[in-house]
């Protein structure tokens, strides 16, 4: 199963894998005295591999399709009465910038954690599954730096994914609908430029929200050589956390769940902005990164790398 899996993966990502190894080889002699420079080169090659990968592009395209679908559906249908469908849906026909907000709201529960889970779950297990992990470890960067680089790659995707949804949403909204002053939840209106800023703020809020999940995915990825297993475990955990968050009987647990503040990004649409949830979310995600980063370190450092 494992070898078959890695074989098929090697074919799909075939154009990138040799380049990665070639990049490593090119860096190795120059960087023998300075592991740090080697690490920077490793980060660059990691990001290059990640964003040249067809799978990454497919996932980003799928995310971009959400706002496009929403915008087209609202455009061709009659006016949406307020209070039906996801929040902000009825505002889209008045202001195109709300496409981005609605799309982010729709993609938070599943699509964003799904794509981030795929990337984060693939980080270490993907290399192990393809048999390239031990080549990476031959270099002087060491396992800690490799782990950091892998996490940085996952974080880069977690930043990109909500940004794509927000910007594609704002773009398609501007094409199909009028753009003007945006009504905030408090009833105040702000100009389009400031609204775009708020949209980017929401995207950054979601990026922060996905940091914890990325760390969990990284840890899962160190546990197994089967990337699909790590991906599935990460995505399942995010769903489980959201289910637990919906049970009122477990109220004491809710502030500790990494998904608890995911939907509180609406606080950025109030006037004045309520920063409390942003700060609390940042602290919570930092805690998850610390705990699961430490777990991943313990596991990866002590792991016998055979592939």
């Amino acid at each position: 199963m494992s070898s078959k899996e890695s074989g098929s993966r090697e074919r799909t990502g075939g154009d990138t894998v040799p380049e990665d190894m070639a990049g490593n080889a090119a860096h190795r002699p120059a960087a023998a005295p300075a592991g740090r420079r080697w690490g920077r080169g490793l980060l660059a090659s990691e990001l290059g591999v990640l964003f040249r990968r067809r799978r990454t592009w497919a996932m980003l395209c799928a995310l971009a399709a959400i706002p496009i679908l929403i915008a087209v559906a609202v455009r061709v249908s009659s006016a949406v009465p307020p209070g039906r469908g996801p929040a902000f849906l009825d505002r889209i026909s008045q202001n195109g910038l709300f496409v981005g907000v609605t799309a982010m709201l729709v993609s938070v529960p599943l699509f964003l954690p799904l794509t981030v889970g795929v990337v984060a779950g693939d980080t270490v297990a993907g290399e192990a599954g393809m048999g390239t992990l031990r080549y990476l470890l031959v270099g002087p960067a060491g396992r800690v730096r490799l782990l950091l680089v892998k996490y940085a790659g996952a974080v880069a995707f977690a930043i990109t994914a909500p940004l794509v949804v927000a910007l594609v949403g704002a773009g398609i909204g501007a094409v199909l609908f009028p753009v003007g002053p945006v009504t905030l939840l408090s009833g105040d209106s702000i100009g389009a430029a400031e609204a775009l800023l708020r949209l980017l703020l929401i995207a950054s809020y979601l990026a922060v929200s996905l940091m914890g999940l990325s760390a969990i995915g990284l840890f899962m990825s160190t546990l197994t050589d089967v990337p699909v297993g790590a991906m599935a475990a990460t995505v399942v955990l995010s769903v489980v956390s959201q289910v637990l968050d919906a049970l009122p009987q477990l109220e004491w647990l809710h502030p500790w769940l990494f998904t608890h503040y995911w939907l509180d990004f609406a606080d950025l649409l109030r006037q004045p902005i309520a920063w409390d949830s942003f700060g609390t979310n940042l602290v919570l995600q930092g805690g998850y990164v610390a705990v699961f980063g430490a777990l991943a370190y313990g596991r990866f450092i002590t792991k016998d790398v055979l592939s």
Binding site: G287, V291, A294, Y297, G298, T302
Partner: peptide, 15 residues
């Protein structure tokens, strides 16, 4: 080997 797992124990304890 057990020392390597120390951060995984210490970090949750500190939190």
């Amino acid at each position: 080997k057990w020392l390597r797992w120390m951060p995984a124990v210490v970090v949750p304890a500190v939190i």
